[in-house]
Design a protein around this nucleic acid. Structure first.
Lengths: 217, 217
DNA sequence: GTAGTATCAACTGTTAACACCGGACTGTCA
DNA sequence: TGACAGTCCGGTGTTAACAGTTGATACTAC
């Protein structure tokens, strides 16, 4: 056996690394909304070729983080208030499907345990940096979708995740804080536990409507 | 003024053309599920370079039409019965959001008119080839999402469209026919017209559940 | 001055070639 | 025979260079 420090190198493709780096740069605001993205500039910054970069840009485009203007010129997407509401409406539709699905599951002890663990994580993060609170919050909602067992649902949610992060950033960090209430997430788990699908659905929708209002109101 | 025949040439990029061609090839079954896609082969068939092709493949991957296996080897996605149900569940969640949104609109005469036109189109197509019936059906549902005015919703739906088409193809054409009932689409429009959002939502969900059962049952 | 045109710079679209990786096949040596 | 190194091959990952388009600037002619 090799030593721990030799167990596998970084074997992600440059494309994936570039994708992650750009996603972070955009959702953190380092690349501000409206900023024009020049392929030659970016490829030099990231030290990769344009071809590789373009593949990553394609994916970001489909995630809605960047948009193509005239003649393929890309720029960082700018979200207005309506778009944030729209994003959270879609998010609500997706997550309410997850909640309904989980509610209707016959044997959901394992599912509930994992959800409670995610809520506990939020609890622990409540005393940490805002960034960690956001991460644990998103992790809870991603878990919700993952546990539904519906891969398509999870994939759709993840395609939206970048837009969600941009919404949070756009709104400003103090507003985002309002959505990190651990109690409201307990309510979601409780609603799923009762097995009342309609109730679970309504809880999620209310949660999302509230979240959107907190961000833009 | 130039003559009508000179108003704009075909200026779609090769990438877009390749994307459309591949999408059609997959959803028509010309490239059967499970088929291994070799970049060098495809680029030669389409007479484009691998770089350009790869950009199109990335997008197809995100639409769920192809999936990457070990070492980036792509193959046409194979849908099983559960995945079709999952896809239609997500579709139901998205379209029910559209229906709710439209129901709650204050002034929806224009919207209703456009929806009725789409239903009429289905009616006309009812006597045509099955392919045209499928097209007019999908066009109705896309219109539903588009009229909601929620761009994110429309985008999510369109990301799913390829998977929906694959589901239809997988199920076989005679089964697909069962979902082309014009009457059921009238019901959707009627539910939206009443302004009862809950009713509209339920109508869509029932429609989708029924559609999934028709396809796989 | 201004309409028209040549030129240039800044990009994106596209391509062909190189690099690398893993699997199949083969030969070698104990 | 059987483990192992060497070699080739099919395929993706990545790159650098070429081509085309657009918009700005400078120049010319009336």
């Amino acid at each position: 056996m090799a030593t721990a420090s030799l167990l596998g190198l970084e074997k992600k493709s440059l494309r994936e690394q570039a994708l992650a780096a750009l996603r972070t740069a955009i959702t953190s605001g380092e690349l501000e909304p409206g900023r024009h993205l020049v392929e030659t500039e970016l490829s030099e910054m990231l030290q990769i070729s344009r071809g590789t970069l373009r593949e990553a840009l394609r994916q970001l485009e489909q995630e809605g983080l960047i948009s193509a203007g005239a003649r393929g010129r890309m720029s960082v997407r700018h979200l207005d208030v309506k778009e944030i509401r729209d994003i959270f409406a879609v998010r609500g539709a997706l997550e309410s499907l997850a909640a309904r699905t989980l509610s209707d599951m016959p044997d959901k002890e394992a599912v509930l345990a994992e959800l409670r663990a995610a809520v506990d994580n939020m609890d622990k993060a409540a005393k940490s940096s805002l960034e960690e609170r956001i991460e644990s919050d998103l992790e809870f909602h991603r878990t919700l979708c993952r546990l539904s067992g519906n891969e398509t649902l999870l994939h759709s949610w993840e395609s939206l995740e970048g837009s969600i992060r941009m919404s949070i950033m756009f709104a400003g960090l103090e507003r985002a804080t309002r959505n990190m209430s651990v109690g409201r997430h307990h309510d979601i788990v409780a609603a799923i536990e009762t097995g009342n699908a309609a109730k679970a659905r309504e809880t999620i929708i209310a949660h999302m409507d509230g979240a959107a209002e907190n961000l833009v109101g």
